[in-house]
Design a protein around this nucleic acid. Structure first.
Length: 737
RNA sequence: GCGCGGUUAGCUCAGCUGGUAGAGCAUCACAUUGACAUUGUGGGGGUCACAGGUUCAAGUCCUGUAUCGCGCACCA
C-alpha cells in the first residue's frame, strides 16, 4: 500500500463523514447550501411561523434592503451592505424574532441612464437622436438583465432575504404609491410647479438637485469692469450681456448718492443701455467694489434679488451652453470660447478696470460628468420640504428614529435645518413619468394621476403630457412604504416601522432623509426606528476604488478565490461602524484559513466522539472542574458576543468569536482534551466528549451569522447521534444564550 | 466660509463607559506526517502626532498646535 493517507481515511476514522476528509472548499458547497436555505422557505418569516420555528407573536425584526442599482455588477461596497444586513438578519432570526428582509432592485433613474448613455456613445449613438420610447425600452431590457444577474450575486453573498417579496422600483404597486403621494402633496399645498433656478447640466440635458452637484475648487480670473459710474466685479463676463440692474447694499455709504430705482444711461458690451439702481441687502460692501450687476436667469442669488424687486429675467445662455441672440456678435458661441473675446472687447472699449488673476472659488459641477453646472430658470415641480423636515426633526427629537452615532445624527439635523425646496423633475426618459399635463398655451401644470385632464384649467388651452420623469430619489424615498405594502397590507401592519435602516453614509441626504420625511408624511410614522450607516470600502491602502486606477476589487473574484465566508469576515473584523474600511485580500485569506480551521476542528471533534451515545453525562466531582470551566467560559463568550450584537458592534463580535474558536477552543481546549479522550477513565472521557460537542455546536451557532456557509455545511453533515435534538438546519437553530 | 473625522507595531486598521497596548499581513527562531495541503510554540518590533491640563491612574476625558482626509455651501 503506497498511499497511506487513503488507508488512514478508511481504517482510522470510520465514523467521520467523508466530506471532512479533505480541506474545506467553499465553491463546492456554497451554491448548494444557498439553494437549500432558499427552498426551505425560512427566509420568509411566515414559513417559519407555519413550521413552528417562530412564535406568531414574536417580536418583528425587519430590514428594507437598499435596492442596488440594476445597472452593473455588485461592487465591494455591496459586499459590505449585504454582509452587515445578513448578519443582522441571521442573528435576529436565531434569536427567535419574526425576521423579514425585504429585497429589491432600483431602476436608478439618472444613474442608469448615464451608464446607458456611455454605452450608446461607445456604439456611436446618442440618446438625443432616439425616440424616447425606444430609448426607454432599450434601457428597460438592459436593466432587467442586469437585475437578474445582480440578484444571483446577492444570493452568492449568502443574503437571507425573502425573495418572494422582492420588488422593483418600476413595479405598478410602487408607481401607484408614488402617484398617490404626488397627488396628496398637491392637495396639501406642499407641491408647486414653478419657474425657479435649477442646476442644469448642458451635457446630460437635465436639471439636477443640489445633491447631484459637486463643488470643485478652482482658480479663475476675476474681472473688474466699468459699469457707468460703478465698478463691478465678475468671474463670468459671458453672462453679463443682459445685465441692466446694478445692486448695492442700502447702507453702503459709497453709493449714498444713488437712490433705489434710479435710471442711469451707460455704455456696455454691445452698446448703450439703461441700468437701474437696486438697493438690496444682498449687496456685500466687503466684496469687490460693493456694487454688482445681476443675471437673474443664471444665478440663484441674482434670481432671488430679482424676485424681491420684481425685475426682468432674460435667458443669456441656451440649454446647450451656447450664447443666445442677446449676445449680438457672440451669438452661438460656447460660453467657454466667448469669455476671453468678450473681455477683449470690453478692454478695447476702455471698460476693463483690472483682472485679478488668482481668484479661487468653488463652482458647482455635474457629479457625473464634472461639467460646470449652468444655473437656468426652468419650470419644474418642487416639493416644499420645510414642513416635512420639521416633522422629521421632531421625530428625531422624540427618538422615534435614532442614529447609531451622534455624528450621523448631527449631520442629518444640520441638513434638515437648512433644507431647500426639492426639485423632483428630471428631463430624462428613464424613470417614473410625472403624472401631469402641461398647457401648451400658458404653460400651466396640472397634476393628473388618472390621466383624465384634456384642457387647461386656467385658459382652456390644449394640454400635453409632462415629458419629464421623477427624480429617482422621490420614488426611492417611499421605498419602505412600497416594500411593506402601504397602506393596508398585512406586512405594513406587521413590519412598519421597520427595525433598522442600514445603508451607506454617502446617501444619508439623498435617501435616508427623504425616506424619513416622506414616511412620516404618508403614514405619520417614521419608516425605521434606527439608522446604521456604514462607510466606504476602499482598497488595501485606503484609496478609493476606481476603474481608472485599476484597483477595483470585485466581490465575485474574492469569493471565488477565498470563499464567501472569508470575504464576509474580512469585511467585518476590525471595521468599526461608520468608518471607511480597507479591503485587503491578505486579510480575507486569513479568514479562508479560519474557515478551514473550523472545518478541521469539526473533524477532530467528530473523531473524538465517534462512540458518543448521546446520554447526558452528569458532572460528578471536583475532578470535572476543567469541563465546568470550559462550559462557563463558553457561556461568558456567548454573552459577550450577544452584547456586541445588540449594540450593532459586529466588528467586535466577529473578532471575539474568531479568537475564541481558534485560540481558545482549538489551541487550548482541544489540545488538553487529547489525553483525556485517549485515556481509559470512562467518565472523564465521556464528559469531555460532551463538553467538546457543546463547544463545537455553540461555536457553530455563534459563527453562523458571520460565516453562514461553512457553518451550515458542517452542521448538515454532523451525524445524528451528535446533533441530538438540535434542528437539522443551523440557520433556524436558537442562538446560544 | 460652516461642520466633521483621522493621526496607535514595517503596512492596513481595532481598542466600549479611563486601570500598565491588540488583530491581519510582514519578520525571526524552533517544532511538526500533525485534527489542520490553510499547523503549533515562542520572539522581535509601539515614549499610542505634539504640547499642556484633569486624575491615585489617560490611546482612552479637556484645551491648544501640527498634519492628512471628508462632508456641506446660490459669495457677485
Amino acid at each position: 500500500m503506497s498511499d497511506n493517507s487513503e488507508q488512514k481515511e478508511t481504517t482510522q476514522n470510520p465514523n467521520i463523514p467523508e466530506i471532512f476528509l479533505k480541506p474545506y472548499s467553499p465553491s463546492e458547497h456554497e451554491s448548494k447550501i444557498y439553494a437549500e436555505w432558499e427552498s426551505s422557505g425560512f427566509f420568509n418569516p411566515d414559513v417559519c411561523i407555519e413550521k413552528g420555528l417562530t412564535k406568531p407573536d414574536a417580536e418583528a425584526f425587519a430590514i428594507v434592503m437598499p435596492p442596488p442599482n440594476a445597472n452593473g455588477n455588485l461592487h465591494a461596497g455591496h459586499g459590505l451592505v449585504f454582509t452587515i444586513q445578513d448578519i443582522m438578519m441571521r442573528y435576529n432570526r436565531m434569536r427567535g424574532k419574526r425576521a423579514l428582509w425585504l429585497p429589491g432592485a432600483d431602476h436608478a433613474g439618472f444613474e442608469t441612464q448615464v451608464v446607458y448613455e456611455k454605452k450608446l456613445e461607445k456604439e456611436g449613438r446618442s440618446r438625443f437622436s432616439m425616440d424616447p420610447k425606444d430609448l426607454y425600452n432599450e434601457i428597460m431590457n438592459f436593466t432587467m438583465s442586469s437585475k437578474s444577474f445582480m440578484e444571483n450575486q446577492i444570493r452568492q453573498l449568502g443574503a437571507s432575504c425573502d425573495w418572494s417579496r422582492s420588488l422593483f422600483t418600476l413595479d405598478d404597486s410602487v408607481i401607484k404609491i408614488v402617484y398617490d403621494t404626488f397627488k396628496r402633496l398637491e392637495t396639501d399645498e406642499l407641491l408647486y410647479r414653478g419657474a425657479r433656478i435649477v442646476n442644469w447640466c448642458s451635457k446630460h440635458q437635465t436639471s439636477l438637485s443640489n445633491l447631484e452637484t459637486s463643488h470643485v475648487e478652482r482658480q479663475d480670473k476675476f474681472y473688474y469692469f466699468k459699469y457707468g459710474p460703478f465698478t463691478i466685479g465678475t468671474a463670468r463676463p459671458e453672462t453679463k450681456f443682459g445685465d441692466k440692474y446694478v445692486v448695492m447694499h442700502p447702507d453702503d455709504a459709497r453709493y449714498a448718492e444713488y437712490s433705489h430705482g434710479q435710471k442711469i444711461e451707460l455704455e456696455w458690451i454691445n452698446g448703450p443701455i439703461t441700468a437701474t439702481v437696486i438697493k438690496d441687502e444682498a449687496g456685500d460692501p466687503e466684496m469687490g467694489s460693493g456694487a454688482m450687476t445681476i443675471t437673474p436667469w443664471h444665478s440663484g442669488i441674482d434670481f432671488e434679488i430679482a424676485r424681491r424687486h420684481n425685475l426682468d429675467y432674460e435667458q443669456i445662455i441656451d440649454w446647450r451652453g451656447k450664447l443666445l441672440p442677446i449676445a449680438g456678435e457672440f451669438t452661438g458661441m460656447s460660453i467657454k470660447d466667448a469669455r476671453e473675446k468678450i473681455v477683449e472687447k470690453l478692454k478695447e472699449k476702455g471698460l476693463l478696470v483690472k483682472i485679478d488673476e488668482a481668484y479661487t472659488h468653488s463652482v458647482p459641477c455635474c457629479y457625473k460628468c464634472d461639467r460646470e453646472i449652468e444655473p437656468q430658470i426652468r419650470e419644474q415641480w418642487f416639493i416644499k420640504t420645510k414642513l416635512l423636515a420639521k416633522k422629521a426633526l421632531k421625530a428625531a427629537d422624540a427618538e422615534e428614529v435614532v442614529f447609531t452615532t451622534d455624528r450621523d445624527e448631527r449631520v442629518f439635523r444640520d441638513w434638515m435645518d437648512k433644507i431647500e425646496d426639492w426639485n423632483i423633475s428630471r428631463q430624462i426618459v428613464w424613470g417614473i413619468p410625472i403624472p401631469a399635463k402641461i398647457c401648451t398655451v400658458c404653460n400651466h401644470g396640472m397634476v393628473d394621476i388618472k390621466n383624465i385632464i384634456t384642457e387647461c384649467s386656467q385658459c382652456s388651452g390644449a394640454v400635453i403630457q409632462d415629458p419629464d420623469t421623477f427624480d429617482t430619489w422621490f420614488s426611492s424615498g417611499q421605498w419602505p412604504l412600497a416594500t411593506t405594502g402601504y397602506p393596508d397590507s398585512d406586512d405594513f401592519k406587521n413590519y412598519y416601522p421597520t427595525s433598522i435602516m442600514e445603508t451607506g453614509k454617502d446617501i444619508i441626504f439623498f435617501w435616508v432623509s427623504r425616506m424619513i420625511m416622506l414616511g412620516i408624511y404618508c403614514t405619520g410614522k417614521v419608516p425605521f426606528k434606527k439608522v446604521y450607516l456604514h462607510g466606504m470600502v476602499r482598497d488595501k491602502h485606503g484609496k478609493k476604488m476606481s476603474k481608472s486606477k485599476g484597483n477595483v476589487i470585485s466581490p465575485g473574484e474574492i469569493q471565488e478565490k477565498y470563499g464567501t465566508d472569508a470575504l464576509r469576515m474580512g469585511l467585518m473584523v476590525n471595521n468599526a461602524p461608520g468608518t471607511d474600511m480597507n479591503l485587503d485580500p491578505d486579510k480575507v485569506n486569513a479568514y479562508k484559513k479560519f474557515a478551514n480551521k473550523i472545518w478541521n476542528i469539526s473533524r477532530f471533534v467528530l473523531e473524538s466522539v465517534s462512540d458518543y451515545t448521546g446520554d447526558e453525562v452528569i458532572i460528578a466531582s471536583e475532578a470535572d472542574s476543567s469541563d465546568i470551566a470550559i462550559i462557563s467560559r463558553l457561556n461568558e463568550i456567548s454573552l459577550e458576543i450577544t452584547d456586541h450584537m445588540e449594540k450593532d458592534r459586529f466588528d467586535l463580535a466577529a473578532e471575539k468569536i474568531y479568537h475564541y474558536v481558534w485560540h481558545e477552543f482549538a489551541d487550548k481546549i482541544i489540545e488538553e482534551s487529547k489525553p483525556l479522550i485517549a485515556g481509559n477513565d470512562a467518565h472523564v472521557r465521556k464528559l469531555r466528549q460532551q463538553t467538546l460537542l457543546t463547544g463545537l455546536l455553540t461555536s457553530l451557532k455563534l459563527l453562523h451569522p458571520f460565516m453562514p456557509f461553512v457553518t451550515e455545511t458542517i452542521w448538515q453533515n454532523l451525524p445524528k447521534n451528535v446533533l441530538g435534538k438540535e434542528r437539522e438546519m443551523l440557520m433556524v437553530t436558537k442562538w446560544p444564550i
